[in-house]
Design a protein around this nucleic acid. Structure first.
Lengths: 154, 154
DNA sequence: ATGCGTGCAAATACTTTGCATGCCC
DNA sequence: GGGCATGCAAAGTATTTGCACGCAT
């Protein structure tokens, strides 16, 4: 069974639980979301759907993304750009990001030491950890190589 | 010397470097920013300034906040709410946040293990670390104790 | 004196929402 | 058939920007 089918099942279940409906629009959006193996924003998604002749409105894209986030099938990622990015998470491990400030490239990483440490910190604060976001900003290898000396900070 | 005075010096230096000017508006904004020992958004800051009779425009608040962030005196914090929060950082250590999804309370923490691990990860990816943001979302002790309902704070 | 900075309002960018109609269960 | 969902456009937020005038260096 493909991941997107398992995701569809889970989404359907989530919707049923809430008394909501699995419409053709929601199906198309979910399918597309699970075909993108990278982060994307609402506008990207809308554009891709339109390009393929799927006639979904911007409002439905936004509304469905919120549902997908709420159902834990999709994660909202914030790179501090004043808009939201998304990535599907079902069937993946959670991961964090290295974001290049020059070229904008995003590299994913996952680190058990940090994950574990967060749990300890939360325990110490008697805080129930639901999820976290960790973004590391800087400059990737290529951008440092590619001419700009910089390197000096502050 | 008070922290805000040292900050003012550093800001002045930064501005000079860039051929920019230290205006009375920028001074007032910086002073206020360094008097707030918590995170705040642009509107909060504007409101506080107005309340004290400092006549600064919204545009100047936004423009100056950007300068303060660029000069590393202030950090932009993103809680995924679609707007930016800020906190002054000069004279402090960098810290991360525990954000309660129920009451919105934010607790700061700072963890050398996580900081160190991030450096190692960046080294492994040949990535130059400039800064990072780590937010942990969940529920604080009080909100878990206080029943399941949304406990809006007083 | 020069040119950056300011306030204002309009513009921009992203996201949400009200309403009339459409369609899933 | 009932009620949620959709599309559209308008409204709502957050932030930036063009312009004419003002002020720091």
């Amino acid at each position: 069974m493909k991941v997107s089918e398992a995701a569809l099942d889970k989404f359907h279940e989530y919707l049923k639980d809430k008394g909501l409906k699995l419409t053709s629009e929601r199906k198309e959006i979910l399918k597309k979301v699970f075909s993108i193996h990278d982060h994307f924003d609402a506008e990207d998604l809308l554009f891709m759907l339109k390009k393929e002749g799927k006639d979904v409105s911007r409002a439905s894209v936004y509304r469905t993304l919120n549902l997908l986030v709420d159902s834990s099938l999709v994660e909202k990622v914030d790179f501090g750009e004043g808009k939201a990015y998304y990535e599907h998470i079902f069937g993946h491990y959670h991961h964090d990001h290295l974001v290049c400030l020059d070229c904008g490239k995003v590299v994913q990483f996952e680190d058990p030491v940090i994950e574990k440490r967060q749990e300890e910190i939360c325990k110490g604060h008697d805080f129930q950890l639901d999820y976290h976001t960790l973004n590391i900003f800087g400059r990737c290898k290529e951008c440092r190589k590619g001419g700009q000396e910089d390197a000096s900070n502050s």
